[in-house]
């Protein structure tokens, strides 16, 4: 019986300990723009941007002792929901916010959503390295992802069914692709939705007849197709130059969003990201800096 009593005591202490842990967890500033002199900043959102955000955070924290920046992914939609719900200071997003989301930020946070463009990305169309296809036009790509085109043969490839890979629907990449390639029509039901661009990459790597899409930074063991705006246009390789001059048809900006004008650490961090050292980090990760001016 004494043993049982000790057990109860131990559990009690364990419970108290857990409660203590819960209390010390960081709660992001709930007010618009965060507390003015907060030395803690949270970034949440786009999986496309999570590595970029981490590199930025590391470089910034190295240069500015005392600042703590936490970066987590989950998808642009997740980040935007977190901004609306007040659980992150900065939302990383690989697509612009929708009007409805802006309204939600205004309604729930009492401040408008403020957008900052922070980098450029070329959305790559991935195929397996063994696929002989080298280029694809946007209308053909649309047919593939709507499920109208079922064989590689129809787009100039081998005579085999196309296996479609994509992102889950909280992904900014999903939203961007849906809007700019599919003209907002629904993806085919057969698109396999994977969590994160790296999962799409590894799926295409393992599937000779797979096709996927995602950030340009993830090209490893797979190939990116050249993309034509329409059948008559030239095929363009995704690169820094073609993304910056706008000739690559599916290049996009990457964004930071805050509820209200950023203040304190948030403001300093965003200004640093847009400065030369901040923009210098981008290319190490594999994306492209903003066009100058």
């Amino acid at each position: 019986m004494r043993f049982v009593f000790r057990l109860a005591l131990v559990s009690l202490f364990a419970a108290l300990g857990l409660a203590g842990c819960a209390r010390t967890e960081h709660a992001p500033a709930g007010d618009a723009g965060g507390a003015p002199e907060s030395s803690m900043l949270t970034l949440k959102g786009s999986d496309t941007m999570v590595i970029l955000g981490q590199r930025w955070a590391e470089a910034y924290m190295k240069a500015n002792a005392g600042a703590t920046i936490q970066v987590t992914g989950g998808g642009s939609g997740t980040g935007i929901a977190a901004l609306i719900n007040g659980t992150t200071d900065i939302c990383e997003s690989s697509r612009p916010m929708k009007d409805k989301e802006r309204d939600d930020v205004q309604a729930k946070r009492g401040a408008p959503a403020v957008e900052t463009k922070v980098a450029l990305d070329a959305l790559a169309v991935y195929v397996n390295a063994s696929n002989p296809l080298t280029e694809i036009a946007i209308p053909a790509l649309r047919g593939v992802y709507l499920g109208d085109t079922k064989s590689w043969k129809a787009v100039g490839g081998p005579d085999h069914a196309i296996v479609l890979y994509g992102r889950e629907n909280n992904s900014g990449t999903y939203g961007y692709f849906k809007e700019h390639v599919l003209e907002n029509k629904d993806f085919a039901a057969a698109v396999q939705t994977l969590a994160g661009t790296s999962a799409v990459v590894s799926a295409v790597k393992g599937d000779p007849f797979g096709i996927g899409y995602g950030g340009i930074a993830y090209l490893e063991g797979i190939r990116a197709l050249k993309v034509k705006k329409d059948d008559a246009s030239p095929a363009v390789t995704p690169s820094l130059q073609t993304a910056q001059d706008g000739s690559y048809p599916i290049a996009r900006f990457l964004y930071f969003y805050t509820a209200g004008e950023p203040t304190g650490l948030g403001k300093r961090f965003i200004e640093w990201v847009k400065s030369a050292p901040g923009q210098g980090v981008i290319e190490q990760v594999g994306y492209y800096p903003l066009p100058k001016g």
């Binding site: 989950g74 998808g75 939609g77 997740t78 929901a81 609306i84 719900n85 989301e101 939600d104 889950e168 629907n169 909280n170 057969a190 396999q192 939705t193 969590a195």
Partner: peptide, 20 residues
């Protein structure tokens, strides 16, 4: 032999995104 989406996977993939 074809892909499947389960109830649990749907909740896991989508709950993070939605506005409460």
């Amino acid at each position: 032999g074809r892909s499947a989406r389960t109830i649990t996977a749907t909740i896991a993939q989508e709950l993070g995104e939605v506005v409460v």
